[in-house]
Design a protein around this nucleic acid. Sequence first.
DNA 1: AGTCACGATGCAACCAGTTGCAACAATGCG
DNA 2: CGCATTGTTGCAACTGGTTGCATCGTGACT
Lengths: 148, 148
Amino acid sequence: MPLPHTEAPGYLVSNLASRGVRMTRQRRAILGIIETASHHLDAAQILRKAQKQEPEVDRVTIYRTLSLLKRHGLIDELDLMHLQGEKHFYERKTPREHVHMTCLRCGRVTEFESRLFDGLKKQVQKECRFQIAVARMEIGGYCSSCRA
Amino acid sequence: MPLPHTEAPGYLVSNLASRGVRMTRQRRAILGIIETASHHLDAAQILRKAQKQEPEVDRVTIYRTLSLLKRHGLIDELDLMHLQGEKHFYERKTPREHVHMTCLRCGRVTEFESRLFDGLKKQVQKECRFQIAVARMEIGGYCSSCRA
DNA sequence: AGTCACGATGCAACCAGTTGCAACAATGCG
DNA sequence: CGCATTGTTGCAACTGGTTGCATCGTGACT
Ligand SMILES: [Mn+2]
Ligand SMILES: [Mn+2]
Ligand SMILES: [Zn+2]
Ligand SMILES: [Zn+2]
């Protein structure tokens, strides 16, 4: 699950600041973590990392920052098949949208880009007259090394 | 969000029974509710309905029955964009797989069947050598009556 | 730099979902 | 039809996420 570092550093901070969102120490820390993350992180992981920088951050602030980012369409939220409890995972939104596959045996998460995914979105926009803000496709099953 | 009643009544009970799963009063009630539901239900709604039939059912039993059904691939779990909290919604799995669109303004949920969805699944199976057990596509945005 | 308004934070109380465990009951067998 | 086995249930304790509220601090304007 490699997330390429395509964006300029601090782009989440600048993006939000340019929309008039206030920047606090806590937010800067959280945004930095999400921006430079190399895998899909859950809220607890983000909290732990944030507290290394800003020991006073509360988990409430993590959740509130995550919904801020969701509201602004800057991150995607994933279930990854809720393989370990109900928690959700987060990744910054990139121009390359992709499908997530989670192996129900080994837990490995793989990403896959497809024309058909974009095509399906276009079809929904057109045929259902539905204006898409977020689209998420998640698959559970067995990866090539795990299936019998 | 109309769910057609295609299956024979009691098919969840028979299906599970034939796999050697024990049938209890509580389960019978819960399965009946899911089977005859006309919309996507969340755990709390299922609990309330079940308690009308079997006042003693505990919410734990609802959650355990839901994971049983998920394990056996008999229901699908949906986020519906987590529009109201973190809760999940459930629907019985039908032969007609569909995409779910949730309007972020009015909350309306619509379903859409598409060849491209099946095509995308086939592509994943083939190109990624990934054996699919569950596939879920969820879209958030603005329905035709809500967009400006 | 000093003031201010209002958005953001932390805390505590709350609610939804999970897990451990002892009591219970569905099913199969004598 | 009663008995034993073993899976299922309800309860209580717990964990993860949310909400209300008083306090705090950012960023705008002087
Ligand atoms: Mn979810
Ligand atoms: Mn549906
Ligand atoms: Zn695997
Ligand atoms: Zn709408």
